[in-house]
């Protein structure tokens, strides 16, 4: 699979379609985001699999935004899995990236990763390498809903109380790009104090992600307190889907129902 990806990147670079390609590289024994600019430098390219598939994924779209803000005229390639491509669709919608300045190199995730992610669509629309596997039904949210209400309440209260307010869930999120963040608004959230404001901190973030979260799971992986953030956002996403028939990033040109005025769109 990696050879196909390498060939594709090499082609994009050599024919001048892109100025550079944002992907992952293995250097000093560690995986890191990298901007490949020369076709001869593709040796360290990797796909973010070390001990398990997809265990060293990074928010490459975030990197792309940083570079594109500085070089708005240039076209860049970016390595995408299903979730990253969903992210791009939403970032286009939110005017953070321009679709004609981005070329994707799409890879499909193996079943093992799709299961671990409970991923609805473990492959990008534009696939370059890997085999498409089936989407997975979201059992985690269902299990949570089956839990008795008071148990569920104390479950989340206990989870939230573990928070150390590192803001890592926001900082790693490829869909968080606001220059001013509500989580730093002192009218809502106390500054420099622990325990965290429960449930305001986590629910504010969950509300803000309702039409943005593309369910990549990076927040979950970076939370030092092991709070199941992804599960929380899967729940808000389920509500969005039930109410508006909307799933963030699934359709390329779909508007968010939260941005529309007037009657709810047809499901």
């Amino acid at each position: 699979m990696i050879d196909i990806v390498r060939q594709k990147i090499s082609k994009l670079l050599s024919d001048g379609s892109v100025k550079g390609v944002v992907a992952l590289a293995m250097a000093n024994g560690h995986v890191a985001p990298c901007l490949f600019q020369k076709e001869d430098d593709l040796e360290p390219l990797c796909l973010g699999d070390t001990k398990k598939p997809g265990d060293a994924r990074y928010p490459l779209n975030k990197v792309l935004i940083t570079i594109a803000r500085q070089y708005p005229e240039d076209v860049f390639g970016v390595l995408v899995r299903g979730c990253d491509e969903r992210g791009l669709y939403v970032l286009y919608r939110l005017n953070q990236l321009e679709p004609d300045k981005v070329m994707t190199i799409g890879i499909a995730c193996p079943q093992e990763l799709a299961k671990a992610c409970e991923c609805k669509k473990p492959y990008p629309d534009e696939l370059v390498a890997g085999e498409k596997t089936e989407g997975i039904t979201q059992q985690g949210v269902q299990d949570m809903e089956d839990m008795d209400l008071s148990k569920r309440f104390s479950f989340w209260k206990n989870q939230f109380s573990k928070c150390v307010k590192c803001y890592g869930c926001r900082d790693i999120c490829p869909m968080c790009f606001c220059r001013e963040c509500s989580l730093e608004c002192e009218d809502i959230i106390s500054k420099g104090e622990l325990p965290v404001d429960i449930p305001v901190f986590h629910l504010t973030r969950a509300m803000h992600m309702t039409d943005r979260c593309i369910d990549c799971g990076l927040c979950d992986e970076t939370c030092p307190s092991g709070i199941p953030l992804r599960l929380l956002y899967k729940k808000t996403s389920k509500i969005m889907n039930a109410e508006f028939g909307f799933t963030s990033g699934i359709n390329k040109n779909e508007q968010s129902p939260l941005n529309l005025m007037g009657p709810a769109p047809e499901k």
Binding site: H30, V31, A56, Y58, Q70, V164, C166, G168
Partner: peptide
């Protein structure tokens, strides 16, 4: 980017912090 620091990202493959940081590290 071009000699200016833009972001901090925790290293996922590090056995010390496994992709996590505290607020100071971030």
């Amino acid at each position: 980017l071009d000699g200016k620091l833009t972001h901090t990202t925790p290293c996922k493959t590090s056995p010390v912090n496994e992709g996590k940081l505290c607020i100071k590290g971030w």
